[in-house]
Design a binder for these strands. Structure first.
Lengths: 193, 193
DNA sequence: GATTAAAGTAAGTGGTTACTTACTTTATGG
DNA sequence: CCATAAAGTAAGTAACCACTTACTTTAATC
């Protein structure tokens, strides 16, 4: 990895510390130390702790990653498409765990910004799933695809929360993939009789 | 409602404030003011802010409510049993929203205690669902009931998170019940071919 | 009416926090 | 070599924090 600018080192340090100890639990002194800069440099660069926090949120947002991860899914059957998307969705969240931790800790303090993030997050995933289910749907079923999409996203999101945030069990990747595969089958059973 | 003791007034005030502003974001002065007691009384009763926090967690835990809510489900078909349980699960979480908010905010700060809570929470619900699915399962299917139970809990938990914590949309109860009903059908499709 | 327990008031402790000011060092590039 | 920009150092601000001490008030009980 290349050397980071002073600014980026501060953002990285703040990102990690905010995710581990929350906004109020982290002091600017700690952040400066972790970034190997003086506290004065931190304030010269960002003005205040709050503005730094906002830059961290912007800089580390999961939304661009999510957009990238759900592009270009080209497979021939619904099972493969859904499984592929489920994995991408899941592992994108894993790679953005710190960001999700921050939004959890600060959902009340910064509710506007964070609600906005989750709104994008949820509608984007749901719409994508609906679009895909529509393509493959049996014509003689009238299942509510939006509800099925919500259910699918919910299972996967909960799997992530349970393993990565709440219980931290470090489950093997193959086991995760098997569960995701089962979840796909549950969905498939719902749209094809 | 009857008058609360000094101790209980402090716990109530702390419960609300911790859920709104987090542990570090709430001062003992604020808590005392909200409880209409002097700060000295707070410290005389609980010793320290941290001990008060622990009492709040203990006093307001969702676990006993969850145990109570999932007892005595007597219905004649699986659809009704699952729907009834899904509703109880969902609305218990709604009634304990503040508690869940606190665990979210402080999951890193008090990880041991909170992981313990979620471990109980998750295993309890999953085991209950598995037990019920087993009773009604078609003998000729070999679906993995534990995975199906996880999926079911996941959908419902995510529905709660999305509506109550992340988006706060105040959706009508009938709409929630319809979604829960659809979720039950998704599960039923998975265990009966 | 005296005793006792639970509350309040007032004042203050030492520590930490976000943030500032003023001055100095370091490194870069013309 | 000089100008400039970005960094550091040192010291300090005012506010706030959790928590304490010492003393007083209130209210219920015997």
């Amino acid at each position: 990895m290349g050397k980071l600018s002073t600014r980026d080192r501060i953002i990285e340090a703040a990102y990690t510390l905010f995710s581990e100890k929350g906004y109020h639990g982290t002091s600017t002194r700690e952040i400066a130390k972790a970034a190997s800069v003086s506290e004065v440099t931190l304030f010269r660069n960002f003005g205040s702790k709050e503005l730094l926090f906002e830059k961290v949120l912007k800089n580390k947002s999961i939304i661009p990653d999510l957009l990238a991860a759900t592009k270009d899914v080209e497979q021939y059957n619904l099972n493969d498409v859904l499984l592929s998307l489920a994995k991408r969705f899941y592992y994108t969240m894993v790679s953005k765990k710190k960001f999700i931790m921050i939004t959890f800790s600060e959902i009340n303090q910064y509710s506007e910004k964070i609600i906005d993030i989750y709104e994008k997050f949820i509608t984007q995933i749901d719409e994508l799933f609906v679009k895909i289910l529509l393509k493959y749907k049996d014509d003689n079923t009238n299942s509510d695809l939006k509800t099925i999409a919500m259910a699918f996203r919910g299972m996967i999101f909960d799997l992530f929360l349970t393993n990565e945030i709440f219980l931290r069990k470090n489950i093997e990747k193959t086991k995760i993939n098997n569960i995701l595969s089962s979840y796909v089958k549950i969905i498939l059973n719902s749209i094809n009789k």
